[in-house]
Design a protein around this nucleic acid. Sequence first.
DNA 1: TTGTAAGCGTTATCAC
DNA 2: GTGATAACGCTTACAA
Lengths: 351, 351
Amino acid sequence: MTNHRVTSQDVAERAGVSRTTVSLVLNNVPGVKISPQTRRRVLDAASELNYVPEAAAQALASRRARIIGLILIRNPHQIATDAFLTQILDGLIETIRPSGMRLLIDIVEPQHQKETYLQLIQAKHIDGIILSGPRYDDDALSSLLEVNFPAVLLGQIPDSDFAFVDVDNRAAANSAVAHLINLGHSRIACITNAPLSYTAALDRLTGYKQALTENGITFDSELIRYGDFVIESGYRQMHSLLASNVTMSAVFIGSDTLAYGAVAAIRERGLRIPQDIAVVGFDDIPFSRYSDPPLTTVRLPAGDLARRSAEILSQLLAGDEPESKQVILETQLVVRDSCGASRSNRRMKLQ
Amino acid sequence: MTNHRVTSQDVAERAGVSRTTVSLVLNNVPGVKISPQTRRRVLDAASELNYVPEAAAQALASRRARIIGLILIRNPHQIATDAFLTQILDGLIETIRPSGMRLLIDIVEPQHQKETYLQLIQAKHIDGIILSGPRYDDDALSSLLEVNFPAVLLGQIPDSDFAFVDVDNRAAANSAVAHLINLGHSRIACITNAPLSYTAALDRLTGYKQALTENGITFDSELIRYGDFVIESGYRQMHSLLASNVTMSAVFIGSDTLAYGAVAAIRERGLRIPQDIAVVGFDDIPFSRYSDPPLTTVRLPAGDLARRSAEILSQLLAGDEPESKQVILETQLVVRDSCGASRSNRRMKLQ
DNA sequence: TTGTAAGCGTTATCAC
DNA sequence: GTGATAACGCTTACAA
């Protein structure tokens, strides 16, 4: 083996063809007819030489980097306890791998939105982008639309043309809170999963309010607290709620991760779940089946969210207009034991 | 704004210099003296034109992709519940960002080790690699050493020249189990965090055995079960343990994530923690402070592991030989309530 | 201190 | 069907 890099030139020489032919064969360019024997020779030569095309050269010449970017809009350390993220990563990598794409991951802080991920794009580092946790105040987002850059939101910005994959956070939160109301609760606190600039956080809060309104319960801002992604914030905000003088018999929390912080705070106060305080979460992270008590929560189809967004992005990259570029996936209220059961529900189960 | 891409040529023309000068200025090439006014002109022109160099062209010409790869050796879905991973990601991104590097993440299945990540390297897609969860049977690993590719293990392979950042899993497991023994336990079960081909899993099991031996307790293979990363496996293996006829009063589990599966299984059997069964985990994921009972576990300095590995890799990339390329970070046994306290300990607390 | 020119390893456009 | 040849946009000796 010589010392220099094996190039397509080497393959071409060994196969007795030109570099063009090597490229055509290796990339399986459609609409080009290569004789079977030539094709074989090229393929053999390539594998004998253990040839791997250089990514940068391919990218430069073809104008495609074969990399997609997963961008998370977060502050430092806010992903450290994000149980949802690993599920997304898992689904994303699995989906894009067959197409030979690679996944680049980056966190951009809300303050630096504009500079940061537009650079990735302008540098043509990535061919397409999946943006998790879009915010209302993200002005870089509209630039994406303007330049018509292939992008899919994991989440959504209302009334925009962006491709997105999301759930109906509002309806899901509504049904979760309605469940609590049906159980007889009327003093229901709420801890958001994140600041309201994150669309998902606002939508879940809105769903909470809707459920109250629809059931004739007056909204009380004293019952609201704002979390920010990490479990600590659930813990702190629950303590804040408990330390205030408001009465409540249940709490709806915008993410399971935060819910477990809240659960700890509730226990520290010597209160029982669900007898003293019922709790409902959101996400249905894998742990929630196993917690004590098992957590009633809204199941987000994490794997599907990841897969669908990757699929849509692939279509965008291929230049196909996807049949549906704005998709809402189903959620499901998973009733477990953290909010007990109303007498009527219990009776139904026994039937 | 014209339709074509802004190139360094455009910047050069606007600034009235050559592309060379533009490159020298923008890359801050050391040891080259550029007059301040020229430098200013170039900088101004670049920002006026909103110039962003094209990554592929840079990579091709400079032979550096400015991307580092984080490779996880796992089977599909085994990262979905990995609470440790998000902490690593967080630390990694934070550390490499200032250097302008990007992070590419990929999962490679143990069966496909060889093909997969060597390709990333041969394609020069990445300049360096951080490999999480090395296995004893990874034959691609030695190829890395042979070609002298910049690589850092998150974990370690005994007796190899690889740069690595790790903890002393054996000693940490030993101290955790010794703690249990000091509490009076002698029938201590063990559930590994992963198959023993993963070095960390074997080391933790070895530490467990050492602790037994050092304290005159006979090793009983009936007390051992093998997990595989996900919470479900902790749950299943604990049930398996409980369903067998072995007696035990404590269980040591190779990862907190699995420990919570085990905790659920223990409760399903109507047993109490720690009164009936004491449990000790490993990792100290953020949740473990908040669980009920709070989990006694070994704290892994996740952020530091990530940071140090990124730092070492940076030095390797810069061509500097790092002062220490094999580093062992401190762990700490965090005693909480999941294994109760021995009578003597309790007395000490009261003093 | 700055410019000229030669790559870097592909893909893509045309001829043949 | 296959092969020259010209991009692609940048870095980097080397020269001036």
